[in-house]
Design a protein around this nucleic acid. Structure first.
Lengths: 219, 219, 219, 219
DNA sequence: TATGAATGAGTGTTCATTCAT
DNA sequence: AATGAATGAACACTCATTCAT
């Protein structure tokens, strides 16, 4: 009997595959609903490997959530908003977040799951802290630049603005299933999505721009 | 043999207790995470009674979700927004939703859970349909009244407005745990909550009111 | 299709069967080596029932150990040593313990297991305390009677005597497997067992009786 | 690529470390309870090395048990009882065994474990046979010398004497945990240990010495 | 000699659900 | 209406052992 083709050993890849599979499963079923067996199967890895690399299910979940935040923040940092003029920068950010949520629905579900568990997995993560600090500072700088350029209102709290930008997109998407029933409308249709981005952009700009700026840009 | 002293039988009350217990457990742990045993224990009822009244866990979940929506819509209807002038009505609605979410955090978690399951439990519910239709129509009437009174902009989609009003509160609250970590700030502190309601009210009013109205009401 | 014959429900019996099966398995394999599945199979019960009645494996083990001690103490109490004259009482006790160990080898293995675990299962058991106190008191009364009758030496510590009576039998039997190899002799052969009881009886009597008594009874 | 700094290779030491670690783990948890991983970790060796040197867990256990017996017998041989007068020799032996058990509690636990498994690991060991034969012969010579010197009784079975000497110490120590509970006394307190050795010495001497000898040595 | 990766068969435990009374 | 007993399928996790380098 011929020896069966063996998978080449590649520890780094195995770990990566498990993480990717876990992301999908946790996103689909939540922490409690996801099955370790299913994660292993999807990763084409032995279940035992999960324990080898991550210790247990919750640690794997923590890693997945942390990585999800990490990627989101990295992509956002790559926008280099500092090099755009303030209004354009805000528009870019709104569109980026919206599109990121759309393209990565797991991110939303993972965040929901982590909140169901009162954020206990990431609570003590230093990596989270570092990532988020630079992210908050970016928004702060942006608002300050806008005020200096007399396009943004004074006294805006960058945290509130940040939350609102995410909120108007996040809520729409995370609740797309109940929303489609409540409003008897396919919220995920292409034109519906475009209309929502348009609406959200206006909502945020009207909140943060001075009346003069709004007039000029016709928002 | 003498019969042992039994608890008084009260079928309606047992059912109600099971529903209340299920709401708490589903909200805390999600559909998959909640335990039938825990629900029965919390309801001080026998597990078998759950099956008697609801058939199975998922049906119980459906009932809980439907009831949660029902109560929300009922309370909202009770606001009688039609009898308020448009700007006041919107402010009232924003505050009501915010306070309802705050006072009934289970509602948010239940909706999240139902969306994790792609709304399959309420998909075919007629009761849901009826509740929501009148709710959407209310917003429509409100916007029309505002336009006619020249305080609201023309052409606003009531669905988008509705979603945004919920979004800016819902997102803040559902993500309060990760949010408190990301922003290194206690998002649930009393002044933080007041500031958020203030911010949300401004955000929505600036979106829907005409510039003149905004000037007048100093928003 | 005819309905299969169902086992009659008998909760008390189920519990008893599980306990009996657990005793056998724990005795054969120890706490760590025994398998919950095997216990359930031997009890012809569902594995779930073990958890229903005992909570977990360790609690089941505790119960088994406690019951084993309980039965041993009960049987010993039934000897009614108080109604025998001292020397006869001691002989009876030595023979009883020896025969009990021989007939109930699980008892020895269970005690060994519990000691491997530093007696943590029975440490807080009140039942254990009660059982053992009356047992120690019995030996005390016996020695006192012997001293008064001038057949036993003065100043003997009942605890030491007790331990030694058990020791000379217990060690021989618990180490019968290695012993048979070490001494290249079948320690469990019928005449070997008789010889050992004889030897043990002499050992204890020579320890506790006065020289005069020993002369009289030719020990 | 430069080879990373490696630990110095020392095959003999690795093997020794594994054996020492295994002794500790097997003694603490028994054969079934001990973990190959834990043994490797304690030995600061790779798990694979265990398989390299010992083949499998049971073989390692066998080696550990054999070594434990070997060391015990070696130390006992080193007492050179032949050069002491009989009564002193017996006293020396009793004290030695007691102190050895006290100083090497793993020995007791290992022997218990091996007996739980019906001595199957050492059954066919030639080394065991050789060790034990000379040990039994030593006791035989001792008793014979005592009889010739008219200090020991005639007709004593050296095997029974041997077993009893071990028994009165072994039982006390192996059951020290349950014993401390049963007798509500700290059996391991320093004075308790001294009292037990004293009691055991008397027990054995009274068994094997002639009445005249006993009178002379006041036992 | 030495090591980390990989695995299949278990291991105690839990679950939603049904049965018998 | 109400309850405790009973179950099979799954669950997260562990184990001794082997593979590839």
């Amino acid at each position: 009997m011929a020896a069966p083709a063996k998978k080449p050993r590649n520890p780094y890849d195995t770990k990566r595959r498990i993480l990717a599979a876990a992301k999908v499963e946790f996103a689909k079923k939540g922490l409690g609903g996801a099955r370790v067996d299913d994660i292993a199967a999807r990763a084409k890895a032995n279940k035992r490997m999960m324990y080898h690399y991550f210790g247990n299910k919750e640690e794997l979940f923590r890693q997945v959530v942390e990585d999800a935040y990490g990627e989101f923040r990295d992509r956002e940092a790559a926008l280099e908003l500092d090099s755009l003029e303030p209004v354009a920068a805000v528009k870019t950010l709104i569109a980026f977040i919206w599109k990121y949520f759309l393209a990565n629905p797991e991110f939303i579900t993972l965040v929901n799951s982590e909140n169901l568990h009162k954020a206990r997995h990431i609570k003590k993560s230093q990596r989270m802290q570092e990532m988020n600090r630079s992210f908050v500072r970016r928004m702060q700088r942006l608002l300050e630049r806008g005020v200096k350029a007399q396009v943004f209102r004074k006294g805006l709290d960058p945290v509130q603005v940040n939350i609102s930008i995410a909120a108007v997109g996040y809520y729409y998407l995370t609740n797309r299933f109940t929303g489609s029933i409540v409003f008897e409308r396919d919220l995920m249709a292409e034109d519906a999505l475009a209309a929502r981005l348009e609406f959200n952009t206006r909502t945020i700009l009207r909140m943060i721009c001075t009346p003069q700026t709004l007039e000029r840009i016709d928002a």
